[in-house]
C-alpha cells in the first residue's frame, strides 16, 4: 500500500488478541483536577470506538494520555504488548509513529503546502536534513499522492493549507495521520469544527479508512447521534470514569441520562437511526 516495502507485521495484521489495553489510567492535573480516574479499556479487534461524555468528562485527556501528549499520572497503556507509559523520549517517538492522530482544529501547519502537511506524517521515519530539504523516500511521496486521492483531494498538493475549507483541512489531517500507517487511530472531536453535512462525510471517511486498513479507531465525539451512526462500540465517560461500554444500540435514554444527566433523549436517539446524506 505504501508502494514498495511492506510494513512490518503488527498485532493488528497478525490478528493478535490485544490491540490496545488501557489499565487504571489516571491523570491528575497540577491544579488538582482529576481528569481521569482509573480508566480501563480493552480493544481486541479493529473496531471504531466512539468515546462520548460531556465536556470535562476526560475524553480529550484520555486520548492524549495514550500517545502521551499529556503525561498520565499512573496506569498503563499497552499497544500491541508494549507499555507506552514510562517509555523514554526516543522510544516514545518510535511508539508515536505507530499511532495516528486527528484533531478537532485540524492542526495543520497553516503556512505549509498540503503535500508538506501530509508528508509530515512520515517525519518519525526520516532524519532532520531530509525534513529540511523536503526529501522523502519515493514510496512515501507516491503514498502521499495515493492518500490525497483517497481522501478526495487529488490535485490539491501544492496549495497552502490555510487556503482550504474546514472539511478539506480535516481530510488533509486524516491523510497525515494515515501516512504514518498507524496501528491505532486517535481521533479528537473530528467534526466539532464542521457543518453537519461535512461532519457526516468526515465520519464516514474515517470509518471506511479504519475498516479497510483493519485498524482500530478511538474517536472522541460529543454528538451522540453521529457516535451511534458510525461506531461499532460506544464508551461513555463521566467525571473521568467509564460509565458505559457497549454497542450503540444499548444507548438507551437511561444510559444517556447516566452519562450526561437528565434531558429528553428521544429526539437524539430517533435521529441516529436514519443514516442518510440528507440528515439536515
Amino acid at each position: 500500500m505504501m508502494g514498495g516495502g511492506e510494513p512490518p507485521p503488527t498485532a493488528a495484521a497478525a490478528g493478535g488478541p490485544l490491540l490496545l489495553g488501557i489499565e487504571a489510567l489516571t491523570k491528575v492535573y497540577p491544579g488538582g483536577q482529576r481528569a481521569l480516574d482509573g480508566v480501563s479499556l480493552t480493544v481486541e479487534r479493529a473496531e471504531v470506538i466512539a468515546v462520548v461524555g460531556s465536556s470535562g468528562a476526560g475524553k480529550s485527556t484520555l486520548i492524549r494520555c495514550i500517545n502521551r501528549l499529556v503525561e498520565p499520572t499512573s496506569g498503563h497503556v499497552r499497544l500491541g504488548g508494549l507499555d507506552l507509559v514510562g517509555l523514554k523520549r526516543r522510544e516514545l517517538r518510535a511508539a508515536r509513529r505507530r499511532i495516528g492522530m486527528i484533531f478537532q482544529e485540524f492542526n495543520l501547519v497553516e503556512r505549509l503546502t498540503v503535500m508538506e502537511n501530509v508528508l509530515s506524517g512520515r517525519l518519525g521515519f526520516v532524519g532532520f536534513l531530509a525534513a529540511l530539504a523536503r526529501r522523502f523516500p519515493p514510496q512515501d511521496v507516491s503514498g502521499a499522492f495515493a492518500l490525497l486521492d483517497r481522501v478526495g483531494l487529488a490535485g490539491f498538493e501544492n496549495g497552502r493549507a490555510d487556503a482550504l475549507s474546514g472539511g478539506q483541512r480535516q481530510r488533509v489531517g486524516i491523510a497525515r495521520a494515515l501516512m504514518q500507517d498507524p496501528d491505532l487511530l486517535l481521533v479528537d472531536e473530528p467534526t466539532a469544527s464542521l457543518d453537519p453535512k461535512t461532519a457526516r462525510q468526515i465520519m464516514r471517511l474515517i470509518r471506511s479508512l479504519a475498516l479497510e486498513r483493519r485498524r482500530p479507531a478511538l474517536i472522541n465525539i460529543h454528538d451522540v447521534a453521529l457516535a451511534q451512526a458510525f461506531a461499532d462500540r460506544v464508551v461513555g465517560l463521566k467525571a473521568g470514569r467509564v460509565a458505559f461500554d457497549g454497542p450503540p444500540q444499548a444507548l438507551t435514554p437511561e444510559v444517556l441520562t447516566e452519562i450526561y444527566g437528565v434531558e429528553d433523549w428521544s429526539q437524539t436517539i430517533r435521529r441516529a437511526d436514519d443514516d442518510g446524506e440528507s440528515t439536515q
Binding site: R98, V109, L112, L186
Partner: peptide, 30 residues
C-alpha cells in the same frame, strides 16, 4: 506560535528538532 500545530507534528513521532523545523519555523517566518 499556535500550540495545536506543534502538538500535531509531535504526535507523528517527529523529533524535537523536526517539530521546530516543520511546525514552529513556518509560523514565525513572516
Amino acid at each position: 506560535a499556535e500550540r495545536g500545530q506543534i502538538e500535531a507534528v509531535q504526535a507523528t513521532g517527529a523529533s524535537t528538532a523536526q517539530v521546530y523545523l516543520v511546525a514552529v519555523l513556518p509560523q514565525v517566518m513572516p
